[in-house]
Amino acid sequence: MIKNPEFNKFGGTNKYIASQALQNAVNVAIALGRPLLVKGEPGTGKTLLAHNIAFGLGKKLIVWHIKSTTKARDGLYVYDTVKRLNDARFGDRDISDIKQYIVLGKLGEAFVFPEQAVLLIDEIDKADIEFPNDLLNELDEMSFYIPETSETVMAEHRPIVIITSNSEKELPDAFLRRCVFHYIEFPDPDLMSEIVLVHFPDIEENLLRGALKQFYMMRQIDDFRKKPSTSELLDWIQALLAGGVSPQKIEKEIPFLGVLLKKEADTECFQGKKTGTYGGRSSFFKRY
């Protein structure tokens, strides 16, 4: 079988290193015209992925941030009844034209965009449990109907849909069946040094090695409430560079610990581990 030339569109960008598996998943999703569902630890670059697909393929990015109060309909269109009611009260506008009170949501915007767009539905798990189910048909058909104006909004160019989830809620099976799924693994040290080099091309070899060594050592501590992730590492390296910390110093201690650990309990736990006095809360359970 010959490699399909339409395939392999996305290969990461100069700002974003994507593993082979991730590139494959993105390309499969684009080729099949199905939404790509991306999961992974916080800070592994789920949201950035959509930005970089749009950037890499030269397409417009439309972002739909999901909140706990977001309804599926908000993404399609909003019918501003209160405004119409208000206009009716003063009678200074022609309220018989309902169209002027219909505002397209982000999904609708992506459908009517004159060329193929990238639509990011960010943190879909924040919304109500039923939310993804309400979007099934719209994402399948890439069209929806507005009863108020008897119009059908149809996508001429199916947008590339990227959906991110932090698995705060289980997504419904029917929804999952329609998606292509990818789980962004935590990068291994090799991939991580590539990622760091993209952001800090001039970093000293020694410094990078020392920083990564300490970072992966900290990742091995399971007692943290929140383990440091890629974005914390990048911030930390920036701090190290700005502070002019020498590689030797990093080997001995961890400067700017607060950049890596964001929770007080974690800092406490880490200091305790270092001095061998770690106990704190969890030791409650070990006593009789």
Binding site: N24, A25, V28, L176, F181, H182
Partner: peptide
């Protein structure tokens, strides 16, 4: 990877 991204929907 292809089969995994299409068939498996949870890590």
């Amino acid at each position: 990877f292809l089969a995994r991204s299409v068939l498996v929907k949870s890590e």
